[in-house]
Design a protein around this nucleic acid. Structure first.
Lengths: 339, 339
DNA sequence: CCCGCTCCTGCAACCGATTACGCTGCCGTT
DNA sequence: AACGGCAGCGTAATCGGTTGCAGGAGCGGG
């Protein structure tokens, strides 16, 4: 079943069938009807590989993420897929598994499949590989980690704003001994959040010792281990801000295991607002990162570049928002520290 | 950059280049070296669409799931992708979003992209659509919901065994008033689990009223709502078995909100063993469903069919296993019911 | 009535690989 | 020396579409 058989049955040329299918050039309504009938009775659908070969467009975007198992990503993948399919595009997902060397395989896969654009939402990035994509004129959109340029856009997440809101919230509850469970500092977006945390405290004249900044790994285990260190401190924090929700889950786990309660003994704030965070015990106060919006912006960036001929990238800014649930409470003993 | 340029530079024909790249037919080592050099200096890589067109193999498998946002699936997707890429195959993921009518779009996408096989891991399935795939000789592997036949395999999960283990565990802890939070009964795999629960209790001579079986939706909310009903019962259960872990999370949430404790007041057992379950508070006792194994079996089924010419399907059986964590404890009051 | 323009349609080249088929040259047999 | 067999390689058809170009029909204006 191919375009030729449809053409024969409709008594037209393959070119006409192609035009009907794609709606590229107007066709007489009579012809169109005949072609559509033929398509229907034969159950024809076009072979997308042949299409790609002829047109140069694969109607497929690549999405490179660290790990689909990390609950931050499925939302994005799903949102992206939905929009893509609505626009007749397909989605090719590749995981780097946090390993920079895997990035090469990912990019290679994208090139072989001739994707019309790539969304890169991982930090494991080698500039040389970006070059490879750029050289072939493939549109790129980064999450956080890119510089805008020809054919490359970036989505900027307002981490600073989110961190500020979280700190404001904790400070207003009387907390002064606020600790931070960071992500791996080699990860730019984690570094950004750590910096924002420090800046934010400084701005409010709150001083904390370096032992209040502990490094996690953006996974549950790391958050747990980091918190165990914090709890051993002679003067442990009354509140912990985590660099992402997974870390925060680890924080809460460690607090529970130490026989303490959240939020009565220690307040915990996360970052990301993964779906699960509202179902934890207690429900986690966290900074919402709008993943649906990120997905939509990423798609728009690629679509504009690949289908509308916009050849210069854009910097999108998405803002964050504090979601107060029940993992935060006023500091114990009524002993509010002086402001 | 295409195969012709490589051929020209190496002083051979495109056929020879193709043979070197694919290793299909032996080539003189001298020739091979020349071709490889040309490939390297030109940075050539084959266009997979042209390849597909010529060979009829897309080297791509489809994976149809309900919702990548459901933590059961990312593990499978990731495992499948890893194995696939290792075997030079690609993975195309499609979400039905639990809507049967979306299945049509998914299948259509698979057909257009000419996938070499499809793994169907959702219940929203129309026999007519399976026909569509079958008629074109596309290998299929189902999770739970398929019948083995020509070009179609099935992966059978031993739900019964898992449920039995869970019940045994609860009974040995003295529980007799055991409730079940089911999934939607329209979902075959949910129905299976409900049936297994009933059978298992009967086998042990434990009688429960129908009010102990409450229907959830396999999401957190449904588990929560179902549990709220259970707690209002004049004689509430001392243990709750949930049809999946998400439901179990909802169960624990409802228990907590009612001011009760897990496991002191009520024991909870989940099903699936999603990664998160070990990090909940308390860590969830649950039945482990081996998702890595499922991914690997699914791949094997498709690979054997599409690349090794095995034209009849296989029924794979994967077994489940009880993971005892801390959400289960002996029934309160020391008042163990008689066995 | 004829010209010119527009609109629709067909012809055929082309996208970049795979692969059936056949040719060449070398080797071992007889 | 002649010949069969085989390994290695090239030629060209093919996969199933897209698209530039040109031909022809139809229509309005002069």
């Amino acid at each position: 079943m191919n375009i030729r058989e449809v053409a024969k049955r409709a008594g037209v040329s393959t070119a006409t069938v192609s035009r009907v299918v794609n709606g590229t050039v107007p066709v007489t309504s009579r012809t169109e009807r005949r072609v559509r009938e033929a398509i229907k009775t034969l159950g024809y659908f076009p072979n997308s590989h042949a299409r790609t070969l002829g047109s140069g467009k694969s109607h497929m975007y690549g999405l490179i993420i660290s790990d689909i198992t990390n609950p931050f990503f499925p939302d994005i993948a799903k949102g992206f897929e939905r929009i893509a399919v609505e626009h007749g595009q397909e989605l090719l997902i590749a995981n780097t598994d946090y390993q920079p060397q895997r990035m090469q395989v990912c990019v290679r896969r994208m090139l072989e499949r001739k994707v019309d654009g790539v969304a890169i939402m991982t930090s494991e990035m080698d500039p040389k590989l970006v070059q490879l994509l750029n050289k072939r004129g493939i549109p790129i959109v980064f999450l956080d980690t890119g510089k805008v340029g020809r054919m490359t856009s970036n989505i900027f997440i307002d981490y600073d704003g989110g961190i500020e809101l979280a700190i404001d919230h904790l400070v207003s509850l009387g907390h002064r001994r606020i600790a931070f469970v960071s992500g791996p500092q080699s990860l730019p977006s984690a570094k950004t959040r750590t910096d924002a945390f420090l800046r934010s405290l400084k701005k409010r004249g709150i001083k904390i010792g370096p032992e209040y900044i502990v490094t996690g790994d953006h996974h549950i285990d790391g958050g747990k281990a980091a918190t165990e260190k914090l709890l051993k401190l002679p003067n442990p924090p009354t509140a912990v801000l985590a660099s992402n929700d997974l870390s925060a889950i680890g924080v809460m786990g460690a607090v529970h295991e130490a026989g303490l309660r959240v939020p009565e003994d220690i307040s915990v704030v996360g970052f990301d607002d993964i779906e699960l965070s509202s179902f934890l015990y207690p429900p986690l106060s966290t900074v919402h990162v709008p993943r649906a919006e990120i997905a939509s912006r990423a798609f728009t960036a690629l679509y504009n570049a690949s289908h509308k001929g916009v050849d210069h990238g854009v910097e999108y800014r998405v803002s964050t928002e504090l979601i107060v649930r029940q993992s935060t409470a006023a500091v114990k003993n009524g002993a509010l520290a002086k402001p």
